[in-house]
Amino acid sequence: MHLVTMAMLATLLTTGSVAVAGGGSAPGSAGVPGLAGAVPGLAGAVPVTASPYRAPLAAVRVLRPFSPPPDRYGPGHLGVDLAAPAGVAVQATGDGVVRFAGPVAGRGVVVVLHPDGISTEYEPLAVAVRAGQPVSAGQRLGTVAGVHRGCAPAGCLHWGARRGGSYLDPMSLLRPLGVVRLLPWD
């Protein structure tokens, strides 16, 4: 039996960007509805060719990288700061629904929930979308406006990402998954 996470399974079955090496189906996959025969060669390596996410800016230069705290309440940086002067357009990094659009502590913030459960966050913005609005990858969310702590005087976009309550490095969304290897269950 092979270990397949729901995220991997959803990606394999719903995207057209998966090329599968080998042939046949994974042992034990016959008991998973829609899996047997749906993904030939599931037992082999599965190279994923593209990420469903894109950069929020036309040009990306990281000023401050993601630096998670050593514990839940420790110091850290839960996103990346990207070089961006005031007025630069900020785009949705993927398809989704705007969960929040408005001011937080005097800065415009937009949060987009994506179909895979990841939320991306953008600030400081002059917000151009509203909560509940569907957005497509590349759609304008607003423009950089105001100052994010740690970026003055040059200005920047703070871009964050999380799944549930766990923050993750948003730059990792831009890299393809690479080769996925299915491991034995035991």
Rank of each mutant, 00 (worst) to 15 (best):
M1K: 15
L3E: 15
M6F: 13
A7Y: 12
A7R: 15
A7F: 10
A10L: 12
T11K: 15
G16A: 14
S17G: 11
S17A: 14
A21C: 14
G28V: 12
A30C: 12
G31P: 07
G31N: 13
G31L: 15
V32Y: 03
V39C: 07
V39E: 02
P40D: 08
L42K: 10
P47R: 08
P47D: 06
V48Q: 05
T49R: 14
T49G: 10
A50W: 08
A50H: 15
A50Y: 10
S51N: 09
Y53Q: 01
R54E: 11
A55C: 06
A58R: 15
V60M: 03
R64Y: 02
P68D: 02
R72V: 13
G74N: 00
L78P: 08
L82G: 07
A83Y: 01
A84R: 00
A84F: 04
P85A: 13
P85K: 05
A86T: 13
A86N: 11
Q91N: 13
Q91H: 14
T93S: 11
D95P: 04
G96A: 05
G96P: 04
V97E: 11
F100I: 05
F100Y: 07
A101T: 00
A105L: 06
V109D: 02
V109R: 00
L113W: 03
H114C: 07
H114W: 01
D116W: 06
D116H: 10
G117L: 00
I118V: 15
S119A: 14
S119W: 08
T120I: 06
Y122I: 06
Y122T: 10
P124A: 00
P124W: 01
L125M: 07
A126N: 06
R130D: 09
R130C: 05
A131G: 09
Q133W: 01
P134T: 03
V135D: 05
V135Q: 00
S136F: 12
A137S: 11
A137L: 06
G138I: 13
R140A: 09
T143G: 01
V144R: 02
V144G: 07
H148S: 10
R149M: 11
C151F: 00
A152D: 05
P153N: 05
A154W: 11
H158W: 03
W159S: 04
G160W: 01
G160C: 04
R162L: 00
G165A: 14
G165M: 06
L168K: 09
L168E: 05
P170H: 02
L173I: 03
L173C: 06
L174S: 00
R175F: 05
L177S: 14
P184S: 14
D186F: 13
D186A: 15
